[in-house]
Design a protein around this nucleic acid. Sequence first.
RNA 1: UCCCCUGUAGCUCAGCGGUAGAGCAGCCGGCUGUUAACCGGCGGGUCGAAGGUUCGAAUCCUUCCGGGGGAGCCA
Length: 463
Amino acid sequence: MDTISVAAARRAEAVGRTVRLCGWVRTRRDSKGGFSFIELNDGSCQGNVQVVAAGELPNYEDVVKKLKVGASVAVEGEVKASPAKGQATEVHATKVDLLGDADAETYPLQKKGHTYEFLRTIAHLRPRTNTFGGIARLRHQVSMSVHQFFDERGFFYIHTPIITASDCEGGGELFRVTTIDPDKPPKKDGRTDYTQDFFGKPAYLTVSGQLQVEAFACSLGKVYTFGPTFRAENSNTPRHLAEFWMIEPEVAFADLSDNMNLAEAFLKRIVGDALAKCDEDLKFFAERVDKGLFDRLNAITAQPFLRVSYTEAVDILTKAGKTWEFPVAWGSDLQSEHERFLTEQHFKQPVILYDYPRTLKPFYMRVNDDGKTVRAMDVLVPGVGEIIGGSQREDRLDVLETRMKEQGLHPEGYSWYADLRRYGTVPHAGFGLGLERTLLFLTGMANIRDVIPFPRTPGNAEY
RNA sequence: UCCCCUGUAGCUCAGCGGUAGAGCAGCCGGCUGUUAACCGGCGGGUCGAAGGUUCGAAUCCUUCCGGGGGAGCCA
């Protein structure tokens, strides 16, 4: 007898097969006719399979009629076409084994809906719900799409380090990595002596693999990194995590226009794959979470992204006739309200903003000929705002070093990075995409803590 | 980190100076294939914590802790 998944058992092709199924009870309904319906889910898909358990089963009264939500069972039986509405198939059980009971008095999940806030307090059990099972499957699909997209285009997957001594952006809050005993640190001249630390100097969790992946772009041509990144910012918002996953491609011999083309194709591929392969889960999110989900996703694949320069965007915003909480002026950064207005109200579609003032962007972005702007780009999408940030990199050694000093960085700390310009420098470009922000966009979920298995945020590192 | 809102039964909430309530879940019973099944009954809470005001505090005040929304920063 084959053991098959719930997903397989729900397909019409399974009718006639005698199979074994294992999963968790979502609900049990006892019929007036002296038998029971068990909704079984094993996480393989959004839907449940309906198991019909006859009153004649030897353990019907003792076990079947006492099955609780959350109990794990193994079922053997024949898959048949369902005579009733609601499902294509059902399994007529010849055997129902209870694997693990779930005490109904204490099991926190009910048949009814729960708030996301409550489910966050039981993060180890929430993947058993429709919503979080669907998010996990979508997260998997997006990850696979990332690798397939780049592999098909000849990119190499580079494993950049998690522990690093360089601080990519020159600012930002970092998590320190140390083996020094915090209660009795070694001292030198009154300060902690990091020469005695594990790495012989201060080390941190990475905030980005960009600098290291650039080294591989400048040798293998087309590369990407995809891994966890860490920010110790004390930001409590529905869009920030202390630990999140980021995808960062980097391409040699590419300029900002190539970079925009890549970013657009990449987003279209991810959304297109999700639409094609996660239809059942997306329908669930469209029904329960975000009514406008399919319109929003289809808008990604349907048309080219608009490309608007920062200067044009500032012009649009100043002429919009709106009162902004933060004033709009050339040279100041665009705020959330401005980005959301552009993509959600003015253009009503994804838009790529580019050529930002040099004072607003990090040292590694290539300075344009006007001297005032850099070849930066941000991809804005309705519902989320900024989802991708990237740039063409500064490939001229002298300009790079000038920009480092401009931003108060010590070029000595980046000598290996400067070497990429010192020896055989090439134009190159890349971007970063936050996996969780992509999932917010794909599912319509409102809080980033609900699209990662175990969220890490200020004051919260449970599980 | 700042501003606003909020914390009452396992869950979702009502009560907002006079001594604790509903729906759902749970338990028991009923019901000729059910679809968040339905119908009847029962049990369940030191009202986030600590102080304070008051004859009396879930209710008013203070502080702290948790949660949510917005902002900053960003992905």
